[in-house]
Design a protein around this nucleic acid. Sequence first.
RNA 1: GCUCCCGUAGUGUAGUGGCCAAUCAUGAAGCCCUCUCGAGGCUUCGACGCGGAUUCGAAUUCCGCCGGGAGCACCA
Length: 492
Amino acid sequence: METLAPELLIKQKKEIIKDLPALENAENGVVMRLAPNPSGPLHIGHTRMAILNDEYVKRYGGKLIVRMEDTNPPTVLPEAYKMILEDLDWLGVKYHEVVNQSERFDIYYEYAEKILAAGHGYMCSCESEAWRKLKDEKKECPHRSTAPEVNLELWKKLLAGGFKVHEISMVVKTDINHPNPAVRDFVAMRMVEEPHPLTGTKYKVYPLYNFSVAIDDHLMGMTHVLRGKDHLNNTIRQIYVYDYMGWPKPVFIHYGWVSIEDTVLSTRQIKAAIGEGQYTGWDDVRLGTVSALARRGIAPGAIRQYWNDVGAKAVDIRFSWENLYAMNRDIIDNDAVRLFFVRDPHARPITGIEKLHSSAPLHPERPELGKREVNMEGDIEVWLTSEDLEMAKPGSILRLKDLGNFEIQGTELKYIGNDLDVLKKGAKIVHWVGPDSFDTEVLMPDGSRITGLAEKTTMYYLGKVVQFERFGFVKLDSASTNGRIIAYFANK
RNA sequence: GCUCCCGUAGUGUAGUGGCCAAUCAUGAAGCCCUCUCGAGGCUUCGACGCGGAUUCGAAUUCCGCCGGGAGCACCA
């Protein structure tokens, strides 16, 4: 066995792939959607809806539509359209169509008119605060009983530009006596003067979330709507539109709230902070954006597995970086080359030998990835981390990994052979770098920086995820012209 | 205040009346292995929020309580 198939002995990975629960009414394929607001790129929180929807579409076959919900010009970030799609691509999400709500206004107008004509909506010129107060008290506002013909006239006047901002809006009736205040009548269309990044000033009358979503979900043939629990009340409101129009309803699934600690996620905050130069950009490794995770060496497969594992139940959960990192480690461990990195390095001259040679595999389980060789001659000096040096008492023996055994003599290291038996006598294995190493700076997710020396070979793996032994997995980002390496910490 | 959702180990998760003195992953502790504090192997720790009811039998059903979360925008 060992000679025939050694890989079977080494890599018996526990491949327990947990399946998402089955979807109702999905036997004949599904149509699902991702409906991001293009106010910024995706962050770790958004990846749940992306992965879950993608997983189901892949499983049952069908179509995944990306629908940019860009109906509020002030919050639209023009670059976000592209960034979101790049994030999805990186995540391995297969979408079949991309549509922008900002280009579908004529459709929303058509349905607004139908709703008004049928008496299911009204044109309201109440001051918004007063209107809300009436709703709280389950009282109708004076416009709620306006005749459809009058409403239609007002609607036409609105479209023709006959009103100013905030002067009038179109409201969809639900049930003014509904026990749940979150569900009573909602504004469906309103005027916006700010130009839209995509359509400019072509339209002035904008739909609001619940209205455009209900219409689009139906028109685009959605069979399943899988979104967060925070939309529970929105679903109830949207169902009123379905019922007014006599549309069949998709299957609605609401997964629980995810609380993500220790991570900056607020698009608005990030945007402001980038402007102030506090972050280098949307992919600053301190952020929880998808691009930041990518930059840090988090594998898309780890994120996918994480959400698959969590599933789509309605329980509120805490996001666990620890669990994500464990999944990430599983994935990257196999390909990450092992290299030496010495933090807070201190030089130590070597005595007792003129020539030293080190040869070690780049990956302990994968000899095919090759070896790295180090040759040193003459007045040899190596660098060790202060942490190891503090532990080592004078006269004790250190095993410099893949190099040799050394006795501590003051600030010098005396070569005493290369026999691994010293390990059995309690010699400690430490990591080291030679004179041709590179200054390296590792940026940690918390914003701190760890500086040290990385061995020469590191330079050949720029752009890759590697393991700095006894330190952790890092993504080697770049090297400046003077040879300083910048790396980002992924996980231990 | 009103309404809704939820409640299994530290974190997630399986479990839909008996197979549960509760699954798996992650975590922690220990041992083995390994020239890494990684990987791998083994062992251990750790949970059904509480109280009633139904039942021969409940983590699974019902009621009450407690606890957590969300929504109540001319944001999405």
